[in-house]
Design a protein around this nucleic acid. Structure first.
Lengths: 193, 193
DNA sequence: CGCCTCAAGCTACGAACATTAGCTTTAAAG
DNA sequence: CTTTAAAGCTAATGTTCGTAGCTTGAGGCG
Protein backbone atom coordinates (compact mmCIF):
# COMPACT_ATOMS: atom_id res chain seq x y z
CA UNK A 1 0.00 0.00 0.00
CA UNK A 2 2.83 2.38 0.62
CA UNK A 3 6.53 2.32 -0.17
CA UNK A 4 9.25 2.24 2.40
CA UNK A 5 8.56 3.65 5.82
CA UNK A 6 4.81 3.73 5.58
CA UNK A 7 4.21 7.18 6.93
CA UNK A 8 0.70 8.60 6.84
CA UNK A 9 -0.86 11.97 7.52
CA UNK A 10 -2.24 10.59 10.73
CA UNK A 11 1.14 9.36 11.88
CA UNK A 12 2.66 12.75 11.16
CA UNK A 13 -0.03 14.49 13.17
CA UNK A 14 0.52 12.04 16.01
CA UNK A 15 4.24 12.71 16.08
CA UNK A 16 3.55 16.43 15.93
CA UNK A 17 1.23 16.21 18.89
CA UNK A 18 3.87 14.37 20.84
CA UNK A 19 6.26 17.24 20.19
CA UNK A 20 3.66 19.78 21.23
CA UNK A 21 2.90 17.87 24.40
CA UNK A 22 6.57 17.69 25.30
CA UNK A 23 7.70 21.20 24.59
CA UNK A 24 4.81 23.37 23.54
CA UNK A 25 3.37 24.51 20.23
CA UNK A 26 6.07 27.11 19.80
CA UNK A 27 8.70 24.44 19.49
CA UNK A 28 6.89 22.50 16.80
CA UNK A 29 9.16 22.13 13.83
CA UNK A 30 9.00 20.00 10.72
CA UNK A 31 12.65 19.15 11.18
CA UNK A 32 11.94 17.65 14.59
CA UNK A 33 9.04 15.61 13.28
CA UNK A 34 11.09 14.37 10.37
CA UNK A 35 13.81 13.21 12.72
CA UNK A 36 11.35 11.26 14.84
CA UNK A 37 9.74 9.74 11.78
CA UNK A 38 13.16 8.68 10.47
CA UNK A 39 12.63 10.65 7.31
CA UNK A 40 14.06 13.72 5.59
CA UNK A 41 12.18 16.91 6.25
CA UNK A 42 10.88 17.53 2.73
CA UNK A 43 9.29 14.08 2.69
CA UNK A 44 6.72 15.31 5.15
CA UNK A 45 5.19 17.44 2.43
CA UNK A 46 3.86 14.25 0.90
CA UNK A 47 1.52 13.93 3.86
CA UNK A 48 0.93 17.51 4.91
CA UNK A 49 0.60 20.66 2.86
CA UNK A 50 2.74 22.80 5.13
CA UNK A 51 3.32 23.69 8.75
CA UNK A 52 0.20 25.83 8.97
CA UNK A 53 -1.99 22.97 7.83
CA UNK A 54 -0.31 20.62 10.25
CA UNK A 55 -1.18 23.02 13.06
CA UNK A 56 -4.77 23.04 11.90
CA UNK A 57 -4.85 19.27 11.86
CA UNK A 58 -3.55 19.24 15.42
CA UNK A 59 -6.18 21.74 16.49
CA UNK A 60 -8.87 19.67 14.85
CA UNK A 61 -7.75 16.54 16.59
CA UNK A 62 -7.60 18.24 19.97
CA UNK A 63 -11.07 19.71 19.62
CA UNK A 64 -12.44 16.34 18.55
CA UNK A 65 -10.78 14.58 21.46
CA UNK A 66 -12.16 17.17 23.81
CA UNK A 67 -15.67 16.74 22.42
CA UNK A 68 -15.39 13.00 22.94
CA UNK A 69 -14.01 13.43 26.45
CA UNK A 70 -16.81 15.76 27.42
CA UNK A 71 -19.46 13.55 25.88
CA UNK A 72 -18.17 10.60 27.87
CA UNK A 73 -18.19 12.63 31.07
CA UNK A 74 -21.71 13.88 30.49
CA UNK A 75 -23.44 10.63 29.66
CA UNK A 76 -25.52 9.29 32.46
CA UNK A 77 -25.68 12.53 34.40
CA UNK A 78 -28.11 15.41 34.58
CA UNK A 79 -28.33 19.01 35.68
CA UNK A 80 -25.74 20.44 38.02
CA UNK A 81 -24.09 17.06 38.36
CA UNK A 82 -23.52 16.88 34.64
CA UNK A 83 -22.21 20.43 34.48
CA UNK A 84 -19.69 19.65 37.21
CA UNK A 85 -18.63 16.44 35.48
CA UNK A 86 -18.09 18.21 32.18
CA UNK A 87 -16.12 20.93 33.92
CA UNK A 88 -13.93 18.34 35.61
CA UNK A 89 -13.39 16.54 32.34
CA UNK A 90 -12.41 19.74 30.55
CA UNK A 91 -9.95 20.66 33.25
CA UNK A 92 -8.65 17.12 33.46
CA UNK A 93 -7.91 17.01 29.76
CA UNK A 94 -5.94 20.25 29.93
CA UNK A 95 -4.09 19.05 33.00
CA UNK A 96 -3.03 15.96 31.13
CA UNK A 97 -2.09 18.03 28.07
CA UNK A 98 -1.22 21.54 29.20
CA UNK A 99 0.28 22.57 25.88
CA UNK A 100 -2.94 21.95 24.02
CA UNK A 101 -4.72 24.92 25.50
CA UNK A 102 -4.21 27.07 22.44
CA UNK A 103 -5.78 24.51 20.15
CA UNK A 104 -9.08 24.99 21.96
CA UNK A 105 -9.28 28.66 21.13
CA UNK A 106 -8.71 28.15 17.42
CA UNK A 107 -11.17 30.30 15.51
CA UNK A 108 -13.86 27.91 14.31
CA UNK A 109 -14.11 29.57 10.90
CA UNK A 110 -10.45 29.40 9.94
CA UNK A 111 -9.48 25.76 9.74
CA UNK A 112 -12.19 24.46 7.54
CA UNK A 113 -15.62 22.99 7.95
CA UNK A 114 -14.33 20.07 9.97
CA UNK A 115 -13.04 22.27 12.75
CA UNK A 116 -16.32 24.13 12.75
CA UNK A 117 -18.11 20.82 13.13
CA UNK A 118 -15.86 19.69 15.95
CA UNK A 119 -16.28 22.97 17.80
CA UNK A 120 -19.99 22.57 17.32
CA UNK A 121 -19.79 19.10 18.81
CA UNK A 122 -18.25 20.50 21.97
CA UNK A 123 -20.98 23.09 22.24
CA UNK A 124 -23.56 20.36 21.63
CA UNK A 125 -22.46 18.49 24.71
CA UNK A 126 -22.84 21.55 26.88
CA UNK A 127 -26.16 22.32 25.25
CA UNK A 128 -27.40 18.82 26.03
CA UNK A 129 -26.21 19.07 29.60
CA UNK A 130 -28.11 22.31 29.94
CA UNK A 131 -31.42 20.89 28.73
CA UNK A 132 -32.81 20.12 32.21
CA UNK A 133 -32.46 23.79 33.06
CA UNK A 134 -35.10 24.60 30.50
CA UNK A 135 -33.48 27.57 28.81
CA UNK A 136 -34.80 29.00 25.60
CA UNK A 137 -32.32 29.05 22.76
CA UNK A 138 -30.80 32.48 23.36
CA UNK A 139 -30.35 31.84 27.05
CA UNK A 140 -28.84 28.46 26.37
CA UNK A 141 -26.26 30.16 24.19
CA UNK A 142 -25.41 32.70 26.86
CA UNK A 143 -25.19 30.01 29.50
CA UNK A 144 -22.97 27.85 27.31
CA UNK A 145 -20.62 30.74 26.73
CA UNK A 146 -20.38 31.42 30.43
CA UNK A 147 -19.57 27.82 31.24
CA UNK A 148 -17.02 27.57 28.51
CA UNK A 149 -15.42 30.88 29.44
CA UNK A 150 -15.13 30.05 33.11
CA UNK A 151 -13.93 26.48 32.71
CA UNK A 152 -11.60 27.13 29.80
CA UNK A 153 -10.26 30.20 31.52
CA UNK A 154 -9.54 28.33 34.69
CA UNK A 155 -7.97 25.34 33.00
CA UNK A 156 -5.93 27.56 30.71
CA UNK A 157 -4.55 29.65 33.52
CA UNK A 158 -3.73 26.55 35.47
CA UNK A 159 -2.05 24.96 32.47
CA UNK A 160 0.16 27.96 31.89
CA UNK A 161 1.20 28.16 35.51
CA UNK A 162 -0.85 31.27 36.11
CA UNK A 163 -1.83 30.40 39.66
CA UNK A 164 1.19 31.29 41.67
CA UNK A 165 -0.11 31.32 45.21
CA UNK A 166 0.08 28.22 47.38
CA UNK A 167 -3.64 27.88 48.03
CA UNK A 168 -5.18 24.61 46.82
CA UNK A 169 -6.16 24.90 43.18
CA UNK A 170 -8.60 22.01 43.41
CA UNK A 171 -10.57 23.87 45.98
CA UNK A 172 -10.64 26.99 43.83
CA UNK A 173 -12.11 24.90 41.07
CA UNK A 174 -14.72 23.50 43.40
CA UNK A 175 -15.74 27.04 44.21
CA UNK A 176 -15.93 27.89 40.53
CA UNK A 177 -18.11 24.90 39.78
CA UNK A 178 -20.47 25.75 42.59
CA UNK A 179 -20.76 29.34 41.40
CA UNK A 180 -21.49 28.09 37.93
CA UNK A 181 -24.14 25.58 38.89
CA UNK A 182 -25.79 28.00 41.22
CA UNK A 183 -25.62 30.77 38.68
CA UNK A 184 -27.23 28.56 36.07
CA UNK A 185 -30.00 27.53 38.43
CA UNK A 186 -30.65 31.11 39.23
CA UNK A 187 -30.54 32.12 35.59
CA UNK A 188 -33.12 29.50 34.76
CA UNK A 189 -35.41 30.81 37.46
CA UNK A 190 -35.26 34.32 36.06
CA UNK A 191 -36.49 32.84 32.82
CA UNK A 192 -40.12 32.97 33.79
CA UNK A 193 -40.19 36.66 34.60
CA UNK B 1 23.36 61.11 24.58
CA UNK B 2 23.21 58.53 21.85
CA UNK B 3 24.68 58.35 18.36
CA UNK B 4 22.62 58.32 15.19
CA UNK B 5 19.03 57.22 15.29
CA UNK B 6 18.50 57.34 19.01
CA UNK B 7 16.78 54.02 19.46
CA UNK B 8 16.04 52.83 22.98
CA UNK B 9 14.84 49.60 24.53
CA UNK B 10 11.51 51.23 25.15
CA UNK B 11 11.13 52.29 21.55
CA UNK B 12 11.93 48.76 20.39
CA UNK B 13 9.31 47.31 22.69
CA UNK B 14 6.81 49.84 21.46
CA UNK B 15 7.43 48.94 17.83
CA UNK B 16 7.22 45.28 18.72
CA UNK B 17 3.86 45.79 20.38
CA UNK B 18 2.60 47.56 17.30
CA UNK B 19 3.55 44.52 15.24
CA UNK B 20 1.85 42.18 17.71
CA UNK B 21 -1.28 44.29 17.70
CA UNK B 22 -1.42 44.30 13.93
CA UNK B 23 -0.71 40.70 13.14
CA UNK B 24 -0.38 38.65 16.28
CA UNK B 25 2.49 37.45 18.43
CA UNK B 26 3.30 34.66 16.01
CA UNK B 27 4.29 37.16 13.36
CA UNK B 28 6.68 39.07 15.59
CA UNK B 29 10.05 39.13 13.97
CA UNK B 30 13.18 41.13 14.65
CA UNK B 31 13.53 41.78 10.95
CA UNK B 32 10.14 43.47 10.85
CA UNK B 33 10.95 45.62 13.85
CA UNK B 34 14.30 46.60 12.38
CA UNK B 35 12.62 47.69 9.18
CA UNK B 36 10.17 49.90 11.04
CA UNK B 37 12.92 51.36 13.17
CA UNK B 38 14.94 52.14 10.06
CA UNK B 39 17.83 50.08 11.31
CA UNK B 40 19.62 46.86 10.40
CA UNK B 41 18.38 43.81 12.29
CA UNK B 42 21.54 43.10 14.31
CA UNK B 43 21.46 46.64 15.69
CA UNK B 44 18.45 45.67 17.78
CA UNK B 45 20.68 43.48 19.92
CA UNK B 46 22.12 46.67 21.36
CA UNK B 47 18.79 47.29 23.04
CA UNK B 48 17.40 43.82 23.60
CA UNK B 49 19.16 40.60 24.49
CA UNK B 50 17.22 38.46 22.04
CA UNK B 51 13.75 37.72 20.78
CA UNK B 52 12.78 35.79 23.90
CA UNK B 53 13.64 38.72 26.12
CA UNK B 54 11.75 41.07 23.86
CA UNK B 55 8.68 38.86 24.27
CA UNK B 56 9.09 39.02 28.02
CA UNK B 57 9.33 42.78 27.90
CA UNK B 58 6.11 42.89 25.91
CA UNK B 59 4.38 40.60 28.39
CA UNK B 60 5.56 42.74 31.24
CA UNK B 61 4.27 45.89 29.63
CA UNK B 62 0.90 44.34 28.89
CA UNK B 63 0.46 43.06 32.42
CA UNK B 64 1.42 46.45 33.81
CA UNK B 65 -0.99 48.23 31.54
CA UNK B 66 -3.71 45.84 32.53
CA UNK B 67 -3.04 46.39 36.20
CA UNK B 68 -3.28 50.13 35.65
CA UNK B 69 -6.46 49.80 33.62
CA UNK B 70 -8.11 47.68 36.27
CA UNK B 71 -7.00 49.97 39.05
CA UNK B 72 -8.52 52.92 37.27
CA UNK B 73 -11.77 51.05 36.74
CA UNK B 74 -11.98 49.97 40.35
CA UNK B 75 -11.33 53.28 42.07
CA UNK B 76 -14.42 54.88 43.45
CA UNK B 77 -16.53 51.73 43.37
CA UNK B 78 -17.34 49.02 45.83
CA UNK B 79 -18.67 45.50 46.00
CA UNK B 80 -20.53 44.03 43.07
CA UNK B 81 -20.32 47.31 41.22
CA UNK B 82 -16.56 47.29 41.41
CA UNK B 83 -16.35 43.67 40.33
CA UNK B 84 -18.47 44.42 37.29
CA UNK B 85 -16.39 47.49 36.45
CA UNK B 86 -13.16 45.54 36.68
CA UNK B 87 -14.60 42.79 34.52
CA UNK B 88 -15.68 45.31 31.91
CA UNK B 89 -12.27 46.95 31.97
CA UNK B 90 -10.51 43.62 31.51
CA UNK B 91 -12.70 42.68 28.60
CA UNK B 92 -12.44 46.16 27.13
CA UNK B 93 -8.67 46.03 27.15
CA UNK B 94 -8.62 42.71 25.34
CA UNK B 95 -11.19 43.94 22.86
CA UNK B 96 -8.97 46.88 22.06
CA UNK B 97 -5.90 44.62 21.86
CA UNK B 98 -7.04 41.12 20.94
CA UNK B 99 -3.56 39.85 20.21
CA UNK B 100 -2.34 40.56 23.71
CA UNK B 101 -4.31 37.76 25.29
CA UNK B 102 -1.34 35.45 25.49
CA UNK B 103 0.73 37.98 27.39
CA UNK B 104 -1.73 37.78 30.27
CA UNK B 105 -1.15 34.08 30.81
CA UNK B 106 2.61 34.39 30.98
CA UNK B 107 3.87 32.31 33.86
CA UNK B 108 4.64 34.80 36.63
CA UNK B 109 7.83 33.01 37.66
CA UNK B 110 9.51 32.90 34.25
CA UNK B 111 10.09 36.47 33.16
CA UNK B 112 11.79 37.85 36.20
CA UNK B 113 10.77 39.50 39.41
CA UNK B 114 9.22 42.46 37.60
CA UNK B 115 6.65 40.29 35.87
CA UNK B 116 5.88 38.65 39.16
CA UNK B 117 5.34 42.05 40.68
CA UNK B 118 3.09 43.18 37.85
CA UNK B 119 1.03 40.02 38.06
CA UNK B 120 0.77 40.61 41.75
CA UNK B 121 -0.46 44.12 41.10
CA UNK B 122 -3.33 42.78 39.01
CA UNK B 123 -4.27 40.37 41.75
CA UNK B 124 -4.04 43.20 44.26
CA UNK B 125 -6.73 45.15 42.47
CA UNK B 126 -9.10 42.22 42.55
CA UNK B 127 -8.22 41.58 46.16
CA UNK B 128 -9.03 45.15 47.05
CA UNK B 129 -12.30 45.01 45.18
CA UNK B 130 -13.19 41.90 47.12
CA UNK B 131 -12.59 43.45 50.50
CA UNK B 132 -16.22 44.46 51.13
CA UNK B 133 -17.20 40.82 50.80
CA UNK B 134 -15.26 40.05 53.94
CA UNK B 135 -13.45 36.91 52.82
CA UNK B 136 -10.66 35.42 54.85
CA UNK B 137 -7.38 35.09 53.00
CA UNK B 138 -7.87 31.60 51.54
CA UNK B 139 -11.36 32.40 50.33
CA UNK B 140 -10.20 35.65 48.83
CA UNK B 141 -7.64 33.70 46.83
CA UNK B 142 -10.23 31.24 45.57
CA UNK B 143 -12.61 34.05 44.69
CA UNK B 144 -9.90 35.97 42.87
CA UNK B 145 -9.02 32.92 40.82
CA UNK B 146 -12.65 32.42 39.88
CA UNK B 147 -13.06 35.98 38.75
CA UNK B 148 -9.86 35.97 36.78
CA UNK B 149 -10.64 32.62 35.18
CA UNK B 150 -14.13 33.60 34.13
CA UNK B 151 -13.30 37.07 32.87
CA UNK B 152 -10.02 36.16 31.22
CA UNK B 153 -11.61 33.09 29.68
CA UNK B 154 -14.47 35.08 28.26
CA UNK B 155 -12.32 37.89 26.93
CA UNK B 156 -9.79 35.45 25.52
CA UNK B 157 -12.38 33.41 23.69
CA UNK B 158 -13.96 36.55 22.34
CA UNK B 159 -10.59 37.90 21.23
CA UNK B 160 -9.74 34.73 19.33
CA UNK B 161 -13.09 34.65 17.58
CA UNK B 162 -14.27 31.71 19.63
CA UNK B 163 -17.88 32.80 19.82
CA UNK B 164 -19.30 31.82 16.48
CA UNK B 165 -23.03 32.03 17.04
CA UNK B 166 -24.93 35.21 16.28
CA UNK B 167 -26.30 35.80 19.77
CA UNK B 168 -25.25 39.08 21.36
CA UNK B 169 -21.90 38.69 23.07
CA UNK B 170 -22.44 41.73 25.27
CA UNK B 171 -25.46 40.09 26.77
CA UNK B 172 -23.55 36.89 27.42
CA UNK B 173 -21.02 38.93 29.33
CA UNK B 174 -23.75 40.59 31.35
CA UNK B 175 -24.94 37.14 32.35
CA UNK B 176 -21.43 36.14 33.31
CA UNK B 177 -20.94 39.21 35.45
CA UNK B 178 -24.23 38.62 37.23
CA UNK B 179 -23.34 35.01 37.92
CA UNK B 180 -20.01 36.14 39.28
CA UNK B 181 -21.34 38.83 41.57
CA UNK B 182 -24.10 36.63 42.82
CA UNK B 183 -21.72 33.72 43.29
CA UNK B 184 -19.37 35.91 45.30
CA UNK B 185 -22.15 37.20 47.47
CA UNK B 186 -23.28 33.69 48.11
CA UNK B 187 -19.76 32.51 48.78
CA UNK B 188 -19.32 35.24 51.36
CA UNK B 189 -22.49 34.20 53.13
CA UNK B 190 -21.29 30.63 53.43
CA UNK B 191 -18.29 32.02 55.20
CA UNK B 192 -19.96 32.07 58.57
CA UNK B 193 -20.92 28.42 58.62
C1' DC C 1 38.70 74.16 19.43
C1' DG C 2 40.22 69.61 18.85
C1' DC C 3 40.65 64.89 20.72
C1' DC C 4 38.92 60.50 23.11
C1' DT C 5 35.89 57.25 24.28
C1' DC C 6 32.20 54.22 23.89
C1' DA C 7 27.76 53.02 22.75
C1' DA C 8 24.91 52.72 18.51
C1' DG C 9 24.97 51.19 14.30
C1' DC C 10 26.84 48.47 10.28
C1' DT C 11 28.52 44.43 7.30
C1' DA C 12 29.68 39.69 7.02
C1' DC C 13 28.76 35.27 8.48
C1' DG C 14 26.78 30.77 10.29
C1' DA C 15 23.06 27.83 11.84
C1' DA C 16 18.19 26.34 11.81
C1' DC C 17 14.08 26.04 9.37
C1' DA C 18 10.26 26.08 5.68
C1' DT C 19 9.41 25.21 1.27
C1' DT C 20 10.04 24.09 -3.85
C1' DA C 21 11.83 21.40 -7.71
C1' DG C 22 13.04 17.48 -9.69
C1' DC C 23 15.03 12.78 -9.43
C1' DT C 24 14.80 7.80 -7.66
C1' DT C 25 12.75 3.81 -5.82
C1' DT C 26 9.52 0.62 -4.35
C1' DA C 27 5.15 -1.48 -3.55
C1' DA C 28 1.17 -2.89 -5.58
C1' DA C 29 -1.85 -3.61 -9.69
C1' DG C 30 -2.41 -5.81 -13.96
C1' DC D 1 7.26 -9.19 -15.39
C1' DT D 2 6.04 -4.58 -16.36
C1' DT D 3 4.03 -0.40 -15.34
C1' DT D 4 2.82 3.42 -12.42
C1' DA D 5 1.97 6.43 -8.91
C1' DA D 6 3.03 7.50 -4.44
C1' DA D 7 6.86 7.93 -1.06
C1' DG D 8 11.04 9.19 -0.30
C1' DC D 9 15.51 11.56 -1.40
C1' DT D 10 19.04 15.39 -2.59
C1' DA D 11 19.83 20.00 -3.90
C1' DA D 12 18.78 24.61 -3.58
C1' DT D 13 16.49 29.14 -2.12
C1' DG D 14 14.78 32.47 1.10
C1' DT D 15 13.93 33.91 5.78
C1' DT D 16 15.19 34.53 10.29
C1' DC D 17 17.89 34.51 14.71
C1' DG D 18 22.03 35.35 16.58
C1' DT D 19 27.42 36.31 16.87
C1' DA D 20 31.74 38.67 15.72
C1' DG D 21 34.15 42.38 14.74
C1' DC D 22 34.57 46.90 12.44
C1' DT D 23 33.06 52.00 11.95
C1' DT D 24 31.35 56.26 13.38
C1' DG D 25 29.53 60.05 15.51
C1' DA D 26 27.97 62.52 19.92
C1' DG D 27 29.21 64.25 24.08
C1' DG D 28 32.71 65.09 27.50
C1' DC D 29 37.35 66.91 28.57
C1' DG D 30 41.68 69.01 28.04
Amino acid sequence: MSPRAGLTTDAVVQLAMAVVDESGPGSLTLAKIAERAGVAAPSLYKHVKNLAELRQLIDLRVVREMAETLRAAATGREGGDAVAAVADAYRGYLRRHPHRTGALTAAPDRGGAELTAATHAVAEVVFAVLRPFGFDRARAVHATRCIRAAVHGFAGLEASGGFGLPEDVDESFEVLKKMLVQGLTNYSEQEKE
